[in-house]
Structure formats: structure tokens, C-alpha cells
């Protein structure tokens, strides 16, 4: 029948696309998204564009101000720091280190947290409780404090601080997933799928996960902003990433020493951190309200 073929090419938006439509209508959230894409691109292709090596010291140009100052030079767009390293290159590499590591941590925490939460949500009784509350004590303490404790035991370093932050991020994913899976398991569509003969893994991946993706994305954005702040804070305190590494927190603490004579050393990484966290929070907020709108419609 020809009439049917007419319709087959039509476009059918998924719930995810509906969320995107609502999200697009908020300009603030879109600004955040554009910033986020900008930072992601910088993290991925930035090193190819960076004009200098981020750790290369140039004794001929110490504390050169940014290009828009009278004494600045276009050779160093954002100026140089106290040992003559180019700020632009350092910030670009800093985006890669700080932003890249945060995303990596969130992905690891999400995979571990969601699997634990899914198992906890689908089992009953003591087993579910143990899995669910396994890492609860971590939730009571601020992530930064846990990180400091772990660093105090294992010694300073970027890898140790990464462990600490991942561990601190997992519980919220476990709880979110477990509560969601619990609620969904009571719904009739899960019973219908069970009567079709679906096993537990089929149920989770085919029936429940498609409904959970939006929730996960929202949770991941909030976790990302926590991870960003913690990584930079540990770097700033000298507990995380160590000096020659171009990490934004480390750069900030190095800039503090020359804050009065070269304020751009402090301002540029600071603005960078600020914009990153702002972008992530704006996107998270926009997504959350878009999801809520779709659910209520």
C-alpha cells in the first residue's frame, strides 16, 4: 500500500530529543553548553594549537604581561609566569589535565556506582542494603576532606587524589540508581517485561536503562562540577597534582606568589576554573529543568 510508504520517512522524536528541544529554549543553558563544548574541544585538540611547550622555561621573558598591556607582546598572548612559561599554552594544557581528568573520574565513578546501584535496586533485603549503604559513610564527609585523608595516607600526587575523588563520587550514583531502579521495578511495564520472560540483565538494560539516561546525565553534570572543584582545590593545596604539571589549581597557587606584581598569573587560571564550573552547572541545571518539564507534560 503506497499510502503507508509515504509516512515511513517521517521523523519521530525520542524522549531524549524532546528533552533537547526544551533544553534549547533556555538561552542560559545553551550558553553553558557552548562553553562546555569549547572547553572539551580545547582539552582534545588544544595541545596541537598551543604555541609553546607548557613546561619550557624562557629566562629572557619573565613575567611578561598579556598582549593587551602596553608592555605586552603578541608572542605571549596571556603573558608569562615567574619562570617565563607561556600562560596561554599552560592554560590550554591545564584545561586538558583538569577537565579531562574530571571527566574520566566521573565516568569511572558512574560505571561503578550505577552497577552497584542496579544490583542493589534489583535485589531485596540485607544484600541490597549492604550494597546500597556500603559507601554511605563517605557521603557524610565532604569529598575534599576524604581526599585529604587519603592523600595523607598514600602520599601526595595526582593519582592518589584521583582515587580519593572517585571514591567520594561513587555513593551518590549508587543511591540515585538504586532509588530509581527500585521505583521502576514496582511499575507494571517491568512486570509486563518479566512475564515476557525477561531476565534481570535484560530488564535492566532494555527496560529500565532507557528511562534512566536523562537522570544519569543530570547526575553526571553535578558530579563533574564537584570533581573539577576538588581536583583544582587539591592542586592548589599542593596535595594533588605537583608543580611542573600544568594543572589549573597548581597554576593558581604558583600565581599567588607573584600576585601583586603579575596579577594575570592568578586571574587567568582563576577565570578558566570559574568558567568551567559555571558551564557545567548551567548545563546541569538546564538539563534538570528540561527533564522535569518533559516528565510533567
Amino acid at each position: 500500500m503506497a499510502r503507508f510508504n509515504l509516512y515511513d520517512e517521517e521523523f519521530f522524536p525520542s524522549p531524549w530529543q524532546h528533552t533537547w528541544r526544551t533544553f534549547k529554549q533556555s538561552h542560559i543553558a545553551m550558553t553553558g553548553l557552548i562553553l562546555l563544548i569549547f572547553f572539551s574541544l580545547t582539552a582534545v585538540i588544544g595541545p596541537f594549537l598551543a604555541p609553546y611547550d607548557p613546561v619550557e622555561q624562557n629566562t629572557n621573558s619573565l613575567l611578561v604581561p598579556p598582549a593587551w598591556f602596553d608592555s605586552g607582546t603578541i608572542a605571549h598572548l596571556f603573558g608569562t609566569d615567574a619562570v617565563g612559561r607561556d600562560m596561554l599554552s599552560r592554560v590550554i594544557y591545564g584545561c586538558q589535565v583538569t577537565f579531562g581528568i574530571s571527566i574520566l573520574l566521573v565516568i569511572i565513578a558512574m560505571i561503578v556506582g550505577v552497577s552497584l546501584g542496579a544490583v542493589a535496586g534489583m535485589t531485596k533485603g540485607v544484600r541490597s542494603s549492604i550494597l546500597n549503604h556500603l559507601l554511605d559513610s563517605l557521603m557524610a564527609i565532604p569529598t575534599l576532606l576524604i581526599a585529604i585523608v587519603i592523600v595523607a595516607m598514600l602520599g601526595t600526587g595526582l593519582v592518589n587524589s584521583m582515587w580519593a575523588i572517585t571514591l567520594a563520587l561513587i555513593p551518590q550514583f549508587v543511591h540515585g540508581t538504586r532509588d530509581f531502579v527500585r521505583d521502576e521495578m514496582k511499575k507494571e511495564y517491568v512486570l509486563a517485561a518479566r512475564l515476557d520472560g525477561a531476565g534481570k540483565s535484560f530488564l535492566f538494560f532494555q527496560s529500565i536503562l532507557p528511562n534512566m539516561i536523562e537522570l544519569l546525565v543530570v547526575q553526571a553534570t553535578f558530579a563533574l562540577s564537584t570533581a573539577l572543584l576538588d581536583i583544582t582545590a587539591l592542586g592548589f593545596l599542593g596535595l594533588g597534582a605537583q608543580p611542573p604539571l600544568p594543572e589549573l589549581g597548581v597554576m593558581l597557587s604558583a600565581g599567588l606568589e607573584v600576585a601583586y606584581i603579575a596579577p594575570w598569573n592568578l586571574a587567568i587560571p582563576g577565570i578558566c576554573i570559574f568558567l568551567m564550573v559555571l558551564a557545567v552547572n548551567l548545563v546541569g541545571d538546564g538539563l534538570r529543568s528540561a527533564v522535569r518539564k518533559r516528565m510533567s507534560s
Partner: peptide, 14 residues
């Protein structure tokens, strides 16, 4: 089986 509430018995995500 056909469930009482067809709204609840259909998966909203797929």
C-alpha cells in the same frame, strides 16, 4: 495478560 492501566504497562523510554 492485559494490564489495568495501559499507561503504566507501557515502557516510556522505548
Amino acid at each position: 495478560m492485559i494490564f489495568q492501566n495501559s499507561n503504566e504497562s507501557l515502557n516510556p523510554g522505548i
